[in-house]
Design a protein around this nucleic acid. Structure first.
Lengths: 228, 228
DNA sequence: TCCCCCATGTGATGCTTATCACGCCAGAAG
DNA sequence: CTTCTGGCGTGATAAGCATCACATGGGGGA
């Protein structure tokens, strides 16, 4: 196993609080597996807006989120962005798992939405564990199922909802993921994520404000009630 | 294992040709696993347009396609249809696998596009094999990865392509899946799949015909060249 | 202080697509 | 033959959204 050493990378046991967090987040694992995870897992920290992964990068490990939020999305040739899903503590990225398993590079980007802590599991162990621990196999499957469902949800919205509903959905997701009613993302960036344009978002925000769903502050949107 | 007996359901070895097909399609499996598949797998046949699976149905088995084409899609509350992907011989449905594994009902519909033959593996064995045979575990993972990629591809098209390009894409998929240059699907049904309307498809088809990509016959579209 | 940049607000305009309203034709059924 | 039905063609109209053009206003740096 190649160990990249920098100040953001630790052997798991170096952080006692994290060990406890892991035990809480991954209760479903057999004690033996949990112990192994703690022995070989590497904790890696990312600051807000840092990239965990970028297009074309080879993936050599599975990533489990311990703390924070990771936005997973794709970018096509023309720079269009496709939001896929956000990952929260206790969750893992499905794509990273198979790409890791098959040593493929991916077309995926992953970015920390807030300061984030993840647990990195080398690819060789992933496979080994899948054959050895039922709970790990189940976890991998469940990860797939959940991401798949989320992707389908995203698909539904893009296919059938108008921009105003999608904007509401976006706001709701931020509220849930970041556990905050204040969104500091610029309209330009929101437009990018929804594949729209700044002007349109501006107009729609105004409508939402008129309806009392949000309140617009300087460089910030406050979510009031998102009836849904 | 509960065995449903009808004329469309056979113990695997009853059909020697199918046994050979399976060996060809699933070369990656260890001989021992292949043998087991042939012992316990059930062959089930579906006629064109028959449903393999409908919304809300409990899934109790994994489905591997032996012959034909299976269209997998979702329908939302308002009757909107979301195309997900087509399954071809040697492929399996990812959704059915985890839903089976977790005994969940799904929101998925699956329909035979032509006369189709599938192999049904009871859910208990799926899990057992995953822990026992590396090749089966890899197959499950690869199935997920592939379906995931296809879903992303669909997402890209819906999000960024105009209807004319999506129609071309649709035609190309049919050509590939059904290995035929003739499409008998009515414009109304194509419109349903692309979440558009008959009139629009009609106009776009005319454009494609003018450009020489297709030729319109009575109740049938002939694909000429789909430059892409 | 002045200037510039960045985020935002807003009107005008045009493209893509949905929808409505018809008309046409062919094959099936009476 | 007549009627009915289902698939298709086509114009008119409008909604949703992108894009362009330009304005405003605040904060930071020279």
């Amino acid at each position: 196993m190649k160990v990249i050493v920098n100040k953001l990378l630790f052997r798991f046991p170096t952080n006692m609080a994290t060990t406890e967090t892991t035990q809480k987040l991954f209760q479903q694992f057999e004690p033996e597996l949990l112990k192994k995870i703690q022995q070989v897992g590497l904790v890696r920290k990312f600051k807000t807006d840092e990239y965990l992964m970028q297009t074309g990068q080879q993936i050599r490990s599975a990533v489990l989120v311990l703390d924070g939020v990771v936005k997973v999305f794709r970018e096509d040739d023309e720079g269009n962005e496709v939001f896929m899903y956000n990952l929260h503590p206790g969750e893992a990225c499905a794509i990273s798992m198979t790409c890791a398993a098959r040593q493929l590079s991916s077309q995926i980007m992953a970015k920390a939405l807030v300061d984030t802590e993840v647990l990195v599991i080398p690819v060789e162990l992933m496979d080994e564990w899948a054959l050895k621990y039922r709970s790990w196999y189940q976890f991998v499957l469940e990860t797939y199922r959940a991401r798949f469902e989320e992707l389908l949800d995203t698909l539904d919205h893009i296919a059938f909802r108008n921009l105003d509903e999608r904007l509401l959905w976006y706001l709701k997701q931020h509220q849930k993921s970041l556990k905050s009613n204040f969104i500091k993302t610029s309209f330009t960036d929101i437009a990018l994520e929804l594949n729209s344009s700044r002007e349109v978002i501006s107009r729609l925000m105004k409508k939402l404000a008129e309806k009392g769903h949000v309140k617009l502050h300087k460089n910030e949107v406050e979510i009031l009630h998102l009836k849904m």
